Simulated scan of single mutants.
Amino acid sequence: MKPRTKTTSRPQGAVHSRTQWQDKLSAWQAHHSTCAIESLMRLLRSPLQSVLTWLVIAVATALPATLYVALENIQALGYQWQDSSQISVFLRRDASAQSITEWRQQLASRQDIAELTYVSPEQAMSEFRQHSGLGDVLDDLEQNPLPPVLLVQPATTASQGAALETLLSDLQAHPLTDDARLDMMWVQRLEQLLLLAGRTVFFLALLLVLGLLLVIGNTIRLAIESRRAEILVVKLVGGTNAYVRRPFLYTGLWYGLGGGLIALILLAAGLYWLSPPVSQLASLYQSDFKLEGLDFITSAQLVLLAGLVGLAGAWLAVGRHLSAIEPQ
């Protein structure tokens, strides 16, 4: 007698459900790709209207981007100014050479000091004689009135206001110090100006994003009104709001991406135009400062952000006006 073989079979319902889910996913992907291509081709078939809308979006996007680039360059220039700041430490006249040397060795080991320069009274008098033009007057002096000076260059990590104040306090508290000078006001003013400029750029960007939402929303509203009959037919044959919404969402996305790309071109053209005079002005001050634009990642983020704003504007417009179009 032959043993019975037990056969197992996959439930037909599960196979059917999986196949149905894959078909729906394929149809969803196909419709998205079709809507993306058709919406782009529709924009290209009306080039004048599309270019004008892209230019409006580009100008609104380029304004905060330009301010952001200007702020970044000012910050970079400010860091150079902070790095070039020096603390002038005027030493006591009766300080011995050995004690000054020992203190210089101690200061050289500090992490918040990048460079230390000692100027003896003789060197200071020689420089003053050379640049002042008062050689005859200085010859009549019985003794050198200039004290020894330490020129302390703070490190980059100590170039901010609070760190500079701490370093200045330590130098002033030393017994060999007669006086220590650092103009802190310009550092504090620079920091506050940069903070104010950053908030101004952020606020202006929010206003322009709101303007972009209104511009794209109005453009999508006109597109919906021009295709009202087509929308009614699609809804009559069973098309859902999500089905009807997709082409307009891709239209808003293309508007945003195109405006972002044109904004990058405008920004690059402006930097190219301004770079020569800025470099010449910097060279007059013995500086190698040059204007820096957006890097690749920031540029991609700008275009993506413009595309998302376009998508959001289209979503708001479609959600508001599409529900009003229903077959009777």
Rank of each mutant, 00 (worst) to 15 (best):
Q98E: 15
R45Y: 09
S99C: 03
R92K: 15
L44N: 03
T66S: 14
V89S: 02
R104S: 02
T66F: 13
C35Y: 09
V59M: 09
Q29R: 13
A70R: 00
A60C: 13
V137K: 01
Y79R: 07
S26G: 09
W54T: 11
T53N: 10
A76P: 00
D140K: 07
R104N: 02
D136R: 08
Q80F: 07
Q98L: 09
V137I: 06
A95H: 08
E38C: 05
W28K: 09
L134W: 00
A97G: 08
E38F: 10
G135R: 02
L91H: 05
F128R: 05
F128P: 02
H31D: 14
R104C: 02
T117E: 14
A36H: 10
A62P: 00
L44R: 09
D136K: 10
A95Y: 05
S99Y: 02
S26R: 13
A65Y: 01
L77R: 03
S126G: 08
A62E: 00
R110F: 02
I37R: 15
V119N: 01
L44T: 08
L40P: 05
S109K: 13
A95S: 14
L107P: 13
Q75I: 01
L25Y: 10
Q123W: 08
P47K: 09
S88G: 11
Q105D: 12
L91M: 11
R110S: 00
G135K: 05
A27E: 12
I100T: 11
Q105R: 14
W54L: 15
Q86R: 15
W28T: 15
Q82M: 11
S132V: 09
P64W: 06
M125N: 00
I113K: 01
T66G: 15
A70I: 11
P47G: 07
D94G: 06
Q29E: 13
S46W: 12
L116C: 05
A65H: 00
L25E: 12
D112T: 00
D136F: 04
Q29A: 12
E115C: 04
S99E: 11
L44M: 10
I37P: 05
R129A: 13
S33Y: 04
H31A: 13
W81G: 04
A97Q: 13
Q111I: 00
L91C: 06
D112Q: 02
Q49N: 14
L40N: 07
W81L: 08
S46E: 14
I113M: 04
I74A: 14
V56K: 07
W54D: 03
F90I: 09
S99W: 03
Y79S: 02
C35K: 06
A97E: 14
F90S: 01
L25A: 15
V119E: 02
R129M: 09
G78W: 02
N73K: 08
L67S: 12
A70D: 01
D94Q: 12
